[in-house]
Design a protein around this nucleic acid. Structure first.
Length: 410
DNA sequence: CTTAGGG
DNA sequence: CCCTAAG
């Protein structure tokens, strides 16, 4: 028995299962375990309909096959709960489904960012070869693709998904064959750099390349969907829908620690020091923008609610009570968002009557009523801000001027 | 560990 | 978003 008893799952290829166990053993104890449990809860939750689950499973398995080193998604994915969702009823607004799919897709795309990691492991080829033939594929459609690896997306698995995201483009741009008997990392990397020219010989890389190219556009769609999903969600039912796979904190900022260790100990060579620091800065710089999700309107509203409930500064409380469904929003992020909101409200106040819809404005896409609430809260709770343009110094307004000076009542 | 402040 | 210093 493996860690998750997956070998017993009928139709699950041995190679795949073996690979899975190995990977799990390596990475056990990773911080994404809570996310996984969240995911399971989500999937088993009767609130969500089969279509979403189905498509998710399809995408998830595909993803696992392709990205062997993808920590989070490939981690403890337990297929054994698959038949358990029978008899669920639906809460399936299309928004939810779409949102879910967007999340999944985006996660996959994120994982694909680590292209080198993907190809670093040679398990890829074997996985491709042993991919479950049980996969629902209409064989007559996919003559060139015996396992339906490249083509499974729209028709076979989830009819709804092609319309919303354009996953059907996969089949358009991809590959005659998933055969890829042996995909050596060098070959793939080579074609990765030149990935426009020879799409005949290196199908997989081309496939993934085009995939990544669309990532940005899909990110937008994702955010839209999430926003709508949030809006349609009940405030009470804060089930975790956020299982978007992300890079764990595992191999983060190795350079930083290395720099400290080495520069202190030995390595008085200026050369290496310079090299390291350069590496570090560029690395972090590129990482900055990488995992950043724009705040949805609903999140902003949650934030405002949370602040009006707990007050400014209780970021952890706000996170736990208003953002416990969002694994990615750390208390610091919430505070940062509040900081930005203050700036936004400040800007809006200065603009006043003129040029409200400035595209440059920080307050763009944030409704006025939200900003109004922000301003009220800002005046209600003092925020330690050295430059603090946010504190209202307007006495022409009738009341609440005395309040904002000190909130200390006891 | 949490928050504030700066990048 | 990330990192660091300070309570």
């Amino acid at each position: 028995m493996g860690p998750f008893g997956m070998e017993t799952t009928p139709g699950f290829p041995d190679t795949f299962a073996g690979f899975k166990s190995a990977s799990v053993d390596e990475n056990l104890g990773h911080s994404m375990e809570d996310k996984m449990s969240d995911m399971k809860h989500f999937l088993m939750d009767p609130h969500h309909d089969n279509t979403a689950v189905d498509s998710f499973l399809g995408l998830g398995m595909e993803n696992m096959g392709l990205t062997s080193k993808m920590e989070e998604f490939s981690h403890g994915f337990d297929v054994s709960f698959l038949p358990d969702y029978g008899g669920v009823n639906t809460f399936s607004t299309q928004d939810v489904e779409a949102g879910l799919k967007f999340e999944i897709l985006d996660g996959i795309l994120d994982g694909v960012d680590e292209v080198e990691d993907i190809y670093a492991s040679h398990e890829l080829s074997s996985i491709v070869n042993h991919f479950p033939p049980e996969t629902e594929v209409k064989k007559n459609e996919l003559e060139g693709d015996p396992y339906g690896l490249m083509n499974f997306s729209s028709e076979s698995y989830s009819p709804g998904i092609s319309g919303s995201i354009g996953l059907a483009e996969w089949s358009k741009e991809t590959v005659p064959y998933a055969e890829s008997q042996i995909v050596s990392s060098e070959k793939v990397k080579d074609s990765w750099d030149t990935n426009e020219s020879e799409d005949d010989k290196k199908p997989l890389s081309t496939f993934i390349g085009s995939w990544i190219k669309r990532k940005n556009r899909k990110q937008k769609l994702l955010n839209t969907a999430c926003s709508r999903l949030d809006s349609s969600r009940e405030r009470k039912s804060c089930e975790s829908y956020d299982f978007r796979p992300r890079k764990g904190p595992m191999k983060k900022y190795i350079h930083t620690s290395m720099e400290k260790t080495f520069s202190d100990d030995q390595l008085t060579l200026s050369e290496s020091e310079d090299d390291i620091s350069v590496t570090k800065t560029s690395r972090t710089k590129s990482d900055r923008r990488k995992n950043q999700r724009i705040w949805t309107l609903d999140e902003v509203m949650n934030l405002v609610d949370g602040i009006s409930h707990f007050g400014v500064g209780k970021w952890t409380d706000i996170k736990n009570h208003f953002f416990h469904y969002a694994a990615h929003r750390k208390p610091v992020d919430i505070r940062d968002k509040w900081r930005n909101l203050l700036k936004a409200s400040y800007n809006e106040k200065h603009n006043d009557g003129q040029a409200e819809e400035k595209r440059k404005s920080v307050a763009r896409s944030i409704p006025k009523d939200i900003l109004h609430r922000v301003r009220e809260l800002a005046s209600l709770h003092p925020y330690p801000f050295s430059k603090s343009p946010c504190i209202v110094h307007d006495s022409s307004r009738s009341r609440s001027t005395s309040k904002n000076k000190k909130k200390k009542s006891g």
